[in-house]
Simulated scan of single mutants.
Amino acid sequence: MDNALLVAIKKIVEISYDEEKIIQNLFRLKEYKKGDFFLKEGEICKYVGFIENGLVRYYINDDGEERTYGFSKENEFTCNFESFGPQTPSKQLIQALENTRIWTISYENLQKLYEQVKNGERFGRLSIEYVLIKTLKDRNSFYTDSPKSRYEKFIKEHFDLQQRISQYYIASYVGVKPQSLSRIRKRISLL
C-alpha cells in the first residue's frame, strides 16, 4: 500500500503498527482512466476513496447541462457522503479528469475499520467533516459570490490545478460560460 494513505490517516489520528496492517487489508487500489467514473448518477456510492495520484471533479446533471461544484486531487479523500452514508442512489457524479489511482474502502470495510481500529470512528468523522465542509463552502460560494470572486477563490485555493483542468470545467465551477470566463480572466490580468 502507498504510504501516502497511511501518512494522511496519521495526520488525523494515531494508529499502531497492528492497526496499519488492518487498514492495509481493508483498502483496495483502483485505477481510473481519464473520463472514467468513480460514481455515476443513480448509483449508490459504495466507496470512500483516497486519491494517490490524479484528479476528479464533482458535478450534477441539470437537465442535460453539467454543473461542476468541486475538484479533488492527490492526497485528498473523495466520496459522495449524501449517497454513501444512507446507501441511497446518488444524484451527483464523480469523474476522473486524468488517469487516477484511488485507494478505496467499501462501506462494509469502513464499518470494520471503525470496529477494529481504536481511533477509526474519529478518523471517519473527521474525514467526512473535511469533505463536507469543503463541499458546502464550494456550494455556498456559488450562491453568495460573484463569478469573478469565485474565479479568484479558485485561483487562490487551486493554483496548482489551473493547467490540469479544462477552461470549460473551470467556467462551469465558476458558474459562467467559457466566453464569460475569458472576459473575467482578462479583467483580472489588467488589474
Rank of each mutant, 00 (worst) to 15 (best):
K10V: 08
C79G: 05
V7G: 03
K33F: 11
S172H: 10
I128S: 06
R150H: 07
L113Y: 07
G64M: 04
E74F: 06
S172P: 03
V176P: 01
Q179W: 09
K33W: 04
N53Q: 12
L39Y: 08
G49A: 08
S106L: 09
T104H: 06
H158K: 14
R28C: 00
K177T: 11
Q162R: 14
F37E: 10
L126Q: 13
K118M: 10
E129G: 00
K177P: 06
D160M: 10
Q87E: 12
I51K: 02
S83V: 11
L110D: 04
K11I: 08
D160Y: 12
G120V: 03
V56H: 01
R150N: 06
S149W: 00
S90I: 09
I15C: 05
Y107D: 10
L5C: 08
L126V: 10
S149F: 02
Y169V: 06
I170D: 02
K118R: 12
N140K: 13
N53Y: 13
Q87Y: 05
T100E: 05
K186R: 11
K148A: 12
A4P: 00
E98C: 06
Y47E: 01
Q163Y: 09
F154H: 02
P147E: 09
F38E: 02
I105D: 01
I102P: 04
E129Y: 08
D145V: 00
C45T: 05
Q92D: 02
F84Q: 02
I51G: 01
Y173L: 13
L113M: 15
E19K: 04
N25W: 01
K46M: 13
L5K: 00
L181W: 03
R101L: 05
Y47C: 00
K118F: 12
K177G: 02
R183P: 00
V48S: 02
K46H: 13
I60R: 12
D145Y: 03
I44G: 05
F27I: 03
L110S: 13
R185Y: 07
E66K: 14
E41V: 07
V48Y: 01
K134G: 07
L113Q: 10
L136V: 12
G49I: 04
F81S: 13
F84K: 04
D62V: 02
G124C: 09
L6W: 07
Q92C: 00
Q87H: 08
Q111L: 15
I102H: 06
D18Y: 04
I170V: 15
Y169W: 14
E66P: 04
E82M: 08
K186F: 01
L110N: 14
I44Q: 09
K177S: 10
S166P: 06
S141T: 06
